[in-house]
């Protein structure tokens, strides 16, 4: 990624979360991975001012307590959080959810490939894109960090 901030992963399935972690490691992505197992936990992380804001959010949709769409709706209505790119990573092929996602301005909607090699390739493309793209400042205290950019990728 363009900066060294954490990647926030919202995923209730432990095995799926492990797969993301492994793919990032295989791709030598250095950003720390923070995992929340549902939308509520994700919001707790984002609203705790002691935590650095993530560079991107990877978001599963089907989760208990607060699902991915409910989470998206909350962060996109929050002036401080809405700028963070949120990318849906799901197995769902539901048309309604997809439209809803784009209405809520998702920064990508990716159907998780079942095959691990293909999954790594998808994560590689996400990583590459968000390394090339500028990132919004979401932490008031570290406004200049992004100019040091590329070394973190």
């Amino acid at each position: 990624m363009r900066n060294s901030k954490p990647i926030l992963l919202l995923e209730d399935d432990t095995v799926d979360a492990m797969t993301v972690k492994r793919a990032l490691k295989d791709l030598q992505v250095l950003n720390p991975l923070v995992r929340a197992s549902n939308g509520e936990e994700g919001l707790e992380y984002l609203r705790d001012t002691n935590n650095p804001k993530p560079c991107v959010i990877l978001l599963d949709l089907n989760m208990p307590k607060m699902n991915g769409m409910e989470f998206l709706k909350v962060i996109k209505a929050d002036e401080r959080l809405k700028k963070i790119p949120a990318i849906v990573l799901t197995t769902s092929r539901d048309d309604q959810e997809r439209i809803r996602g784009f209405q809520l301005n998702v920064a990508g909607y990716i159907i998780k490939p079942v095959d691990y090699t293909k999954f790594v390739e998808a994560v590689r493309i996400v990583h590459l894109y968000w390394t090339l793209s500028e990132m919004p400042d979401t932490d008031e205290e570290c406004k200049n960090e992004k100019f040091q950019a590329n070394s973190a990728s």
């Binding site: 997809r98 439209i99 996602g101 784009f102 209405q103 990508g108 909607y109 990716i110 159907i111 998808a122 493309i125 996400v126 590459l128 894109y129």
Partner: peptide, 8 residues
């Protein structure tokens, strides 16, 4: 990237 992603 946008080919990998679904379209609305």
């Amino acid at each position: 990237y946008w080919n990998l992603s679904e379209a609305p």
